[in-house]
């Protein structure tokens, strides 16, 4: 574990520029996958509108960086905090919807965000805007330094997400969350406030998703409503990653992310057919192996990379 970390942390010293960009993209997707996995796989909050926060984070970073002369990386915590703040009223609204209707509700929110962003003319309206050169330079003077910083930032945010997730899932609340997933009634009889737990999970993941969004568009240097609030890029792919890898497991998102990038590098030339293959694979996995590839591996070999399993048994009577 420590070795992997050192190798990854020193990547800017040994990896080429394109490798570095690729790695940070992997980190960002893995982060999104973990967050969606916690939402849907553990807390039972199936959202198809996480692109709302990816786009919000991106747009907020651009707006702040263009108005305040601080390096964008220093703005990340602010973006995260703002993401959490805006998620509070949103959650109190859409938590009135349940199950699949909750899912579509999250999508409506993302649409509202996208349409609103298109109305902000100082950020380019519907066609979007680029990060001004002065802001880009403030990240770092040289291009390679800039990319190193972006890479490190992505790694740090990913580690933050994984760390928080671990703390969370091993805490009383985290166990409660797993209990909710397994048996809502049992969780209630344990005296766990389901609503508040889910609310908290939603708000925190919103904040972290916003930070990832900020990083994604800091690397792209350009933002537009359609790219920032894309349901395909920030939700469909993420869902496929988690479902194919193994929803509700900690190992699944890693497997799914690796597989996703492998498929993308080999099949991306197929264009739309590639997306159809991805969709069909996710459907097949959901029908035949609902715990994904990792579920299959785990069932056959009993391996666990993360010692997280705790069994709670409830009697029927």
């Amino acid at each position: 574990m420590a070795c992997t970390l050192i190798i990854l942390a020193t990547a800017p010293l040994w990896a080429g520029r394109s490798d570095l960009r690729f790695l940070s993209e992997v980190f960002l997707y893995l982060g999104l996958a973990y967050l969606w996995n916690v939402l849907a796989g553990y807390a039972g909050l199936v959202s198809v509108g996480q692109q709302a926060y990816v786009g919000f984070g991106g747009y907020l970073l651009f707006a702040l960086a263009m108005n305040i002369s601080i390096t964008p990386i220093a703005l990340l915590p602010v973006v995260g905090l703002a993401g959490m703040l805006i998620a509070v009223p949103i959650a109190s609204l859409i938590f009135r919807l349940h199950g699949a209707y909750f899912a579509i509700g999250t999508w409506v929110i993302a649409e509202v965000f996208r349409l609103s962003a298109a109305q902000i003319s100082s950020l380019g309206g519907g066609s979007g805007t680029s990060l001004p050169v002065s802001v880009v330079k403030s990240i770092a003077a040289s291009r390679s330094d800039r990319e190193s910083f972006s890479y490190w930032a992505a790694l740090v945010v990913l580690l933050l997400i994984i760390g928080l997730m671990f703390l969370f899932l091993r805490s009383r609340t985290g166990l409660a969350m797993t209990a909710i997933r397994d048996n809502e009634l049992a969780a209630e009889s344990l005296g766990i406030n389901i609503w508040r737990t889910k609310f908290m999970v939603y708000v925190i993941t919103a904040g972290l998703t916003s930070m990832l969004g900020a990083l994604i568009f800091m690397q792209k240097l350009r933002i537009s409503p359609d790219a920032a609030f894309s349901v395909n890029d920030w939700t469909a792919f993420v869902i496929f990653i988690v479902v194919i890898g193994g929803i509700g497991t900690l190992e699944g998102p890693i497997i799914g992310t690796l597989l996703y990038f492998l498929l993308r590098e080999t099949l991306a030339d197929l264009g739309t057919a590639y997306l159809m293959i991805l969709g069909a694979t996710a459907i097949l996995i959901m029908l035949l192996a609902p715990k994904g590839i990792w579920g299959l591996v785990n069932a056959r070999f009993g391996i666990e990379l993360f010692p997280m399993t705790r069994r709670v048994i409830f009697n029927k009577d």
């Binding site: 849907a40 199936v46 198809v48 199950g99 699949a100 899912a103 395909n232 469909a236 869902i239 496929f240 479902v243 929803i247 739309t272 057919a273 997306l275 159809m276 991805l278 969709g279 069909a280 996710a282 459907i283 959901m286 029908l287 609902p290």
Partner: peptide, 28 residues
């Protein structure tokens, strides 16, 4: 029908996958 049950995730994700397939199939 294979996805129907108490768990809301399978029908949701299967129809979501279907949506992506339909969109891209039509595009093709």
């Amino acid at each position: 029908n294979r996805t129907m049950g108490s768990d809301i995730l399978p029908p949701l994700l299967v129809t979501f996958g279907l949506s992506v397939i339909l969109q891209n199939g039509l595009l093709e």
